[in-house]
Computed example of a mutant assay.
Amino acid sequence: MSKVVVVTGAGAGVGRATVAEFARHGYDVALLSRDKGRLDHAAADLKASYGVRGLGIQTDVADADAVEAAASLAERELGPIDVWVNVAMATVFAPVSKLTAQEFERGTKVTYLGQVHGTMAALSRMRTRNRGTIVNVGSALGYRSVPLQSIYCGAKFAVRGFTDALRSEIIHDGLDVHLTTVDLPAVNTPQFDWALNKMGKKAQPVAPIYEPEVAARAIFFAATHRRREVWVGFPTVKAILANRIAPGLIDRYLASAGYKGQLTDEPLAPDAPANLFEPVSGDYGAHGRFDSRSRTTSWEMFTNRHRNAFLAVTGVAILGGISVLIGRKREK
């Protein structure tokens, strides 16, 4: 019997790449997103390309009842949910002074409460079966905020707090349900062309940039291995660790570099699409416009996949170094 995965934000970007990654491994996939046409196209492609079932369910993850209904439909049509992946997100490129309360509310509902709603819908079903995996997709920006994306950063911080609290509850209840987080770096997705942007210039990810398939492989790995969290890309590791050491210095650095790093010199069209409140139509795939600048692999994911061997080699190297030092001391 095939395993079943539900992926939110499945219409484009990391979500679309994640759908393909699970399908490649034989999973039947329920795809949740707001744009029905894009979902239907992606779901049909799964059967043709991978021979698995794809079920597109038009869903706004900000609506808890809609997410619950989608989970019920997925189980009726495909079977018990084995894995639930929360990818859906929304961001706005603008300083706080140019944002409205409605924009904050909407972005937070999608990026934070969307993960809460998905987790609750999945956990209520997995709890009764005492099995399953939930993957929450975080970000380096959930540890180190940047200017111009306060809505997104705040929501990703909230995702981390929610996930950590729930993990302790799952342990307390003795459930065999795995909860994991995958923290992503800058990824080449269409969001930089359709996110609401009030800066007058086109947005861009801060280099180095990774292809969405790198993120998708990390998500699949996290879903099938007992890892508490997975950091993807050295920029993620650097941002998390550096912020613990010198947050004040990073504040000052980002006050200048954080603006120009996220914006190109290209003017933004007055009629540029914005997907915060309504989906942007079209058959958007996983990739954005930055393929020529994007990396297809992540060294950090290699070491995470081969963690035991990596630690063993590192341990041997450290012991070897200590032995050399001891030998030199004895010679003296």
Rank of each mutant, 00 (worst) to 15 (best):
D63Y: 10
I134H: 06
R76N: 15
T111G: 02
M126G: 01
C153T: 04
H117F: 11
N136A: 08
A122K: 03
G118L: 06
L73F: 14
R106L: 04
L73A: 15
D63P: 08
I134Y: 01
D60H: 08
V61F: 01
P147S: 10
N136S: 07
A88L: 13
Q58L: 10
A122V: 06
V110S: 04
V85K: 04
I57L: 13
G142F: 08
S150G: 02
S49R: 12
Q149M: 10
S139M: 03
T59F: 01
S139Q: 07
G114V: 10
A74W: 04
P95I: 15
T119V: 04
S124W: 06
H117K: 00
L141Q: 05
R129P: 06
L148T: 13
T91L: 15
G132Q: 09
P80A: 15
E68F: 14
F93N: 05
S145P: 09
T108W: 13
C153W: 01
A69D: 12
L141Y: 05
E105K: 14
Y50A: 02
G79F: 13
D65L: 13
A122D: 00
Q149N: 09
V137H: 09
G107D: 07
Y143S: 04
G132P: 00
D82M: 11
E75Q: 11
I57G: 05
L141R: 03
L73H: 13
T119N: 02
V67T: 12
T111Y: 01
K109F: 14
L123D: 02
V52C: 03
V96Q: 02
D82K: 12
L73D: 14
L73Y: 08
S72Y: 15
A101D: 03
T91H: 03
E75S: 06
A122F: 04
Q58W: 14
V92H: 02
T133D: 08
L123K: 04
E103F: 11
S150Q: 06
L141K: 04
S97G: 13
G118I: 07
T108N: 10
I81K: 04
R144S: 15
C153G: 00
G138S: 07
S145N: 08
A88E: 00
M126N: 02
P95Q: 06
G154S: 09
L141M: 11
G54I: 14
A88T: 06
V96P: 04
A74G: 09
E105P: 11
T100K: 03
D63Q: 08
G138R: 08
M89P: 07
E105N: 06
G142R: 03
T111L: 07
V135K: 01
A155V: 11
P95Y: 13
P95C: 09
T111K: 10
W84E: 09
A122M: 07
R127E: 14
V137N: 01
L99K: 00
Y143T: 05
V83L: 04
A88I: 09
N86W: 12
I151S: 00
I57R: 02
I134V: 15
A90I: 14
E105A: 15
V146C: 10
S150H: 01
L55T: 09
Q58Y: 12
T133W: 09
S145M: 06
V67G: 09
N130S: 13
Y152S: 00
G114T: 08
F104P: 08
T108A: 10
G114C: 00
I57A: 00
V85Y: 03
G51P: 03
V110A: 03
I151N: 02
T108E: 05
V83H: 04
S124T: 14
P95V: 12
A94M: 10
L55A: 05
